[in-house]
Design a protein around this nucleic acid. Structure first.
Ligand SMILES: [Mn+2]
Ligand SMILES: [Mn+2]
Ligand SMILES: [Mn+2]
Ligand SMILES: [Mn+2]
Lengths: 216, 216
DNA sequence: ACAATTAGTTAGGTAATCCGAAACATTTAT
DNA sequence: ATAAATGTTTCGGATTACCTAACTAATTGT
């Protein structure tokens, strides 16, 4: 209906992302994620509500059908941009998030289609997340966080939920990339770290980090 | 010094482009090119003057040293974007201008360098214009407009100064692309059309169009 | 229960861009 | 010399998207 601005796209994208973790998304988490003041977010939430893009659930907010649909379009462009950056321009997976976050607002539907085709219809972004198809359909798979594996379990890394370049660099330096095979050697009790084995080497991983790594 | 917004970049880019044709650039031509109202342009010119990016020459305006330098950076990103679109994503030269005009504001210095490298350090955009190097240096060549050739002269097309997709489509359908060899068969008097020969076929070309085609 | 902390909203502002209407200025054509 | 056309700027107004300070509501520790 309405013309969505890049900023609205950016808010919807963030809400979508935060929803994966914590359902009704709060003002403060959004403000934190977008690096804006709470009042700015509060104000924008009212606008999004007025446009029918979010519903107010208690104190928080969640995407409506339409908000979700727009968010998925933005995410499609984001993930295709990331792939363009890694596959064609030679970026590392730790360097693409911020660039893609700007690019995604400068990509026309035509360009979106061409990127997809030129890349050979990739299924996921460099972090293992599925790229929504042009109708917004996402292949969802039931994945477990690495942090829930028991000792001696083996699995394949599917995705890494992380935007921080330093963390991504660290993980790839350990070989913990999508498709890598990982096995859990030990699980320390009381929320302690996991001892995991990746391509022959053993590492200790905090639960926090491990929970962001999804495996199959 | 100051943070230049995408809009300022866009104005400087337009001024640069219009300067090639008509030296002190007037409010109305700028408004026309940018598709904005004259008051908007008038206001922005005051701001650019305040920032030391343009000088006021009589009724019009022209870029200062600094304004020129910024414009060239924008144009570098624009032309690199165009090449990315044609060489990697398979766009036609008639489809890239508007896309590049958005992309150019979403490209970091890092990405700029990577595009250049991935494309094999291209010298020109798809329309034959030189891509400024990272220090803003442009290889300038002394070119003649096709409209000034005399009958029976032969030349090579270097660049086509045109943004209109329809016109570009038309020209490429005649094979009038950069690097094509063209010969002038006849020049009608009193500003009439030229009869030219490109790859074996003869066409009549208006002076207006011919003046936008630069040859060597 | 009550003060301290945390979270969210209201109020009031600012900066960047754009617009239309109207006032000026400058040309150009009677 | 005048009137008409053309181009430019001034003015007032709108929109979007931020912010800080202050206030309110909800939670939490003692
Ligand atoms: Mn983004
Ligand atoms: Mn990703
Ligand atoms: Mn542009
Ligand atoms: Mn070009």
């Amino acid at each position: 209906m309405e013309a969505d601005t890049p900023r609205i796209e950016e808010y919807l994208e963030s809400i979508y992302k935060l929803q994966q973790v914590q359902h009704p998304v709060t003002t403060s988490r959004l403000a934190e994620h977008l690096k804006l003041s709470p009042p700015s977010v509060s104000e924008m939430m009212k606008k999004l509500y007025g446009k029918g893009l979010v519903n107010q659930i208690g104190k928080g907010v969640c995407l409506t059908e339409e908000g979700n649909s727009i968010a998925k379009k933005v995410i499609r462009r984001h993930r295709l941009s990331e792939r363009l950056l890694t596959d064609i321009l030679g970026y590392g997976w730790d360097e693409v998030h911020d660039e893609a976050c700007k690019l995604e607002h400068a990509i026309s539907p035509e360009m979106e289609a061409r990127i997809e085709e030129s890349l050979g219809n990739p299924e996921t972004c460099p972090h293992g997340y599925p790229i929504p198809d042009k109708d917004g359909v996402i292949k969802k798979e039931n994945l477990r966080p690495l942090s829930e594996l028991k000792a001696s379990e083996k699995a394949t890394i599917v995705s890494v939920f992380e935007e921080d370049p330093k963390m991504l660099q660290y993980l790839s330096s350990l070989g913990m990339l999508p498709r890598a095979t990982i096995s859990v050697e030990e699980v320390a009790p009381f929320g302690g770290p996991l001892i995991v084995c990746v391509s022959g080497s053993r590492y200790a991983l905090g639960r926090e980090v491990a929970s962001k790594i999804k495996v199959r």
